[in-house]
Design a protein around this nucleic acid. Structure first.
Lengths: 155, 155
DNA sequence: GGAGAAGTGGGGGGAAGTGGGTGAATCGAT
DNA sequence: ATCGATTCACCCACTTCCCCCCACTTCTCC
């Protein structure tokens, strides 16, 4: 399982292409075959999974979701509709569909913020991200969660 | 598990590079492969983990955090966003990202204070540190903690 | 006082990111 | 069915930044 971290900003070009930061690419397993899956994320951003990790996510969806439950069905549909498998070109770039760009507030000729979060990468519009981070500082967030879970002396 | 202690001041150069004090470097395990991970710490400073220790921290995050929980997600994101893996150059230096420098109140061509705290190293702006330590003396702090935890005759 | 290590400063090669162009394939229309 | 237009994928080229190596100074420990 890859472990993404760190952030990088890359520009979406006029053709809707954007380079996946080299730092993130180097985390891909060979099993991913330079292929990724893009899906809408929970907080108006795009989630990028390496193909091999996505397989596992998909297996989890099959297991946990019940298609006879209307709410589950709607959730599944709304995620999978926009799921987009993309293979990196020789420059390490992918194409982002218009639907996903709209969803995340991205557009051509604008920057995209890649954030590595363990087993997936989030793609944000920098504007949306500044709104998001304005809410709380890393320190505050950490202390809140630390109250719930004792991380021991490691962190 | 490494056991850092002591402090040292090193200068950040114009390129944002700073030497990890030799005293701290000598504590690294060979498994760290001269690689460290920098993350924002709970009090406006940078935390430095040797790569092998960070693996354990990360494993703890994976275990304790649930990405279906919005608050956990935000916390993970805000920490990992600025997480930066750096390999020491032949001079024992690392590069500090602008984001982390801002977070800790550091800047290029200014000194950075390295403080060894058992399994990680804290990197402070000397200015911030003097404010911090002006608040309470080691003796007061110790006595406060000793009220909570009996350290026995060891300390 | 000398030798070696530790910390600081600078420069060149290469990779990463960005932009553009051409050929093949798909779709639509006549 | 053929032709045309549009789109996509692959390839090539350029620029910038970063990483790695080399050189110097200072401090420390014999």
């Amino acid at each position: 399982m890859p472990r993404f971290k760190g952030q990088d900003e890359c520009k979406i070009d006029d053709k809707g292409r954007v380079a996946v930061p080299s730092k993130m690419r180097s985390v891909f397993n060979p099993e991913a075959h330079n292929t990724v899956v893009l899906v809408p994320g929970p907080d108006s951003h795009i989630r990028l999974y390496p193909a091999d990790t996505w397989e596992e996510v998909e297996a989890g969806l099959v297991e946990k979701m019940n298609t006879s439950n209307p709410k589950h069905r709607r959730t599944l549909r709304s995620i999978l509709r926009f799921a987009d498998e993309q293979t990196l070109d020789s420059q390490g770039r992918i194409r982002v569909s218009n639907d996903l760009m709209n969803y995340a507030g991205l557009s051509t000729s604008s920057p995209a913020l890649f954030i590595g979060v363990l087993n997936y990468v989030e793609i944000w519009s920098p504007d949306h991200m500044t709104e998001e981070e304005a809410i709380e500082s890393p320190a505050d967030l950490y202390n809140e969660v630390a109250a719930d879970f004792d991380m021991g002396s490691l962190f």
